[in-house]
């Protein structure tokens, strides 16, 4: 599974990398537009287009009915009820295509999430590295080796009861670094990114299952049976501004993909 995840991730690396020097929302918007277009086509072929058109027509009709019989409370209420039921029917028609597009869209969202939800550390910022090990090893034996550009700013804190050992790290120079963590003769790495570019970042690395690798595509999972249970640290939230306002990437994704979809739905001939 990992090679597929890796390929998908590489594709997003390449695509978003094209807009590396630009505002973060440029790349995000391109992905949103492409997603909008592709999902619209998928929607077309996985939904019952005739039934959706019919349900929409009925909803419109009942809203007209509310207008036409505005002086007749009984008919008004009946029209409201019919509009509600037609609306429910319309929503139910969205379920089958929703199920079809759910997984690919989740995969896309995860790819965006690892790039836009948080940002890399900036030189001078600190973070807390947590290493969880299995019960069979002593957390006191865990060692950490950091490359140049990353400094250990405090002595490790070991919590044997939790099988945990923590280090405080400080970013010193821009770059992508691999921390080397060793215990019982086994060494694993954990990537840490320092800088201000849009790139995939992973806060944690653990023994993920086959499906879970889709949810953590930035770094390969720790092999099953490893003495390491999980390695993690925290990146700061990304605060992206557009026209002076902080905008969450998910909102941008939603608005851009929906607006683009709306703009081309006539061209594609899709009933949504």
């Amino acid at each position: 599974m990992w090679p597929i995840v890796k390929a998908v991730t590489a594709f997003f690396d390449g695509l978003i990398g094209l807009f590396g020097g630009m505002h973060p929302f440029v790349g995000l918007s391109v992905v949103s537009i492409l997603t909008g277009a592709v999902m619209l086509v998928v929607w077309k072929f996985t939904s019952n287009q005739k039934a959706i058109a019919a349900a929409k027509s009925k909803i419109s009709a009942y809203i007209y009915e509310i207008r036409i019989f505005q002086e007749d409370m009984g008919l008004q209420m009946a029209a409201q009820r019919k509009a509600f039921l037609a609306n429910m029917k319309y929503l139910s028609l969205a379920v089958p295509p929703l199920i079809v597009v759910l997984l690919p869209v989740v995969a896309i969202l995860v790819q965006l999430d690892v790039r836009y939800e948080r940002r890399p550390l900036l030189p001078g910022e600190s973070t807390l590295l947590k290493v969880m090990v299995s019960e069979s090893v002593d957390p006191g034996d865990v060692t950490l080796e950091v490359p140049a550009g990353i400094a250990i700013s405090a002595l490790p804190v070991r919590i044997p009861r939790e099988h945990e050992v923590d280090w405080r790290l400080r970013a010193e120079n821009e770059g992508e670094y691999d921390l080397q963590i060793t215990v019982a003769g086994e060494t694993v790495t954990k990537r840490i990114v320092v800088g201000d570019k849009i790139t995939k970042i992973a806060e944690g690395r653990d023994q993920a299952g086959i499906l879970a690798v889709w949810l953590a595509p930035a770094e390969k999972p720790i092999p099953k049976g490893s003495a390491f249970q999980a390695i993690s640290f925290q990146y700061p939230d990304r605060d992206t501004k557009a026209w002076g306002y902080s905008l969450h990437w998910l909102l941008v994704f939603f608005v851009v993909s929906v607006l683009f979809g709306f703009a081309i739905k006539g061209v594609v001939g899709v009933e949504v």
């Binding site: 619209l40 909803i59 139910s92 969205a94 597009v101 939603f254 899709v270």
Partner: peptide, 18 residues
């Protein structure tokens, strides 16, 4: 299904918004 629709591409997004 409505809130999920909003995040599943434009088709479902429209469904939700409409």
């Amino acid at each position: 299904p409505a809130p999920v629709d909003a995040y599943i591409g434009p088709g479902a997004g429209f469904a939700f918004l409409s």
